[in-house]
Amino acid sequence: MTLTAEAPVQDSPAAGAIPSFQVTLKLRRFNPESDTEPRWEEHTLTMHGTDRVLDALHKIKWEIDGSLTFRRSCAHGICGSDAMRINGRNRLACKTLLKDLPLDKPVVVEPIKGLAVMKDLIVDMEPFYSAYKSIMPFLVTTGNDPSRERRQSPEERERFDDTTKCILCAACTTSCPVYWSDGQYFGPQAIVGAHRFIFDSRDEGAEQRLEILNDREGVWRCRTTFNCTDACPRGIEVTKAIQEVKRALLFRRV
């Protein structure tokens, strides 16, 4: 992408409609080398029509305070690096346009909740990835591989399409009140990861995965609050996927 924080886009329709505007960002900051407690910091910036929260963070980092620290890479909602809590909702900073937020009050940006804050907006992702690993997130098959591709009808392929979209950004898991309140629950992403294989007609590992999810800290901890579905930047119906896994457990039928 173009670094729009540096180079205003004047030619696109959206930029034409809202040429530039003032925005105040209220950031939750924490530097483990100098702070004992997290602190709040505000910056008021001039931004442009197509700018996103990520552009505002870059503007601060590149022009005001180089020590502001966050993860980012692709900057268009595909790599999953920059999930953060924006005005109390988990979102990707690179997919949240500033002009779509209420700009009459500060835009509040905090690290995602439920994972240890390492510095500013960076959290420890290891527990999240560990939960994903625990549900055997890979195709399980038995017997000889066929010489060509395994056959799968378009309908069978469609059955698990929604959960293949997951980019492991952790927006769902860290929006879940059950995940916040105890450190044992896998969280919604791990169940999404399991769903993607349980409902794949080629997979033969459903029994094992369902057994893992049937655990005391597994899928039954879900209280169907739908936070995860609201948070998913890929539009995955997370709660529905969790319900489908619960049903598969009850009836042992995929």
């Binding site: 993860r71 890479s73 595909i78 790599c79 999953g80 492991l168």
Partner: peptide, 10 residues
């Protein structure tokens, strides 16, 4: 990067 952040994904 974490492996799943790599730009192959784009």
């Amino acid at each position: 990067l974490y492996p799943t952040r790599s730009h192959t994904g784009a």
